[in-house]
C-alpha cells in the first residue's frame, strides 16, 4: 500500500525542518505538501490544480497546521470530516498554538491528535520524528479508497 503523508504547512522554514526531521527519522514515505487550506482541500478532493489526476489514494495521515492562509486548519478539518470520502482519514493538528480553545476546537472537530510544535529545535525534531514513526509505521489506518 502506498502510504503517503499530507503535510499542510504555510511556513516554508517549518516545512523544511519537518521534512528534514522526518528524513532523519528514516521515514521514507512520500510526503505531499499543501501550503494553504484551500490547496489541501483541492488535493484531497481532486479539485482545481489537482483535478483530473485520476483516482488517488488518500494520505495515510494529514499533518495539519492551524494558522493557514485562506482556509484555516480548523476549517479544513471540518470540511474533511463532513465529506464521506475523507471523514475517517487520521488528522494530526501540528501547530505553534498552545491555546486551550484551539485544542478544544480541534478535538471537537474530529482531530485524532493535537501536537504543539516546540520552539526548541531538538525537541521539535524529536516530536516530528516520533509523529512520523507512530502514524506511518505503528498506526493502522482505516481502509480507505
Amino acid at each position: 500500500m502506498n502510504r503517503t503523508i499530507l503535510l499542510v504547512e504555510d511556513n516554508p522554514q517549518d516545512e523544511m525542518l519537518i521534512l528534514r526531521s522526518l528524513k532523519k527519522a528514516n521515514v521514507g514515505n512520500r510526503i505531499d505538501v499543501a501550503r494553504d487550506g484551500q490547496q489541501a482541500l483541492d488535493y484531497l478532493f481532486s479539485w482545481g490544480q489537482f483535478a483530473g489526476a485520476g483516482e488517488k489514494t488518500l494520505p495515510t495521515v494529514i499533518l495539519l497546521d492551524i494558522g493557514l492562509p485562506r482556509l484555516s486548519g480548523l476549517e479544513v478539518l471540518q470540511r474533511i470530516r463532513e465529506d464521506d470520502r475523507t471523514r475517517l482519514v487520521p488528522v494530526v493538528i501540528l501547530t505553534s498554538s498552545d491555546e486551550e480553545s484551539d485544542r478544544l476546537r480541534s478535538y471537537e472537530s474530529g482531530a485524532n491528535s493535537f501536537v504543539r510544535k516546540p520552539v526548541e529545535f531538538a525537541a521539535f525534531a524529536e516530536t516530528v520524528s516520533r509523529l512520523g514513526i507512530y502514524w506511518v509505521l505503528t498506526n493502522e489506518p482505516p481502509c480507505l479508497k
Partner: peptide, 21 residues
C-alpha cells in the same frame, strides 16, 4: 496574544532549527 503565541514562535524555531541542522 494569539498572534504572538503562533507567529513569533515559527521564526525562532527556524533560527534554532537551522543552526542545529
Amino acid at each position: 496574544a494569539y498572534a504572538v503565541s503562533h507567529d513569533l514562535r515559527a521564526p525562532l524555531r527556524a533560527m534554532s532549527g537551522f543552526s542545529q541542522a
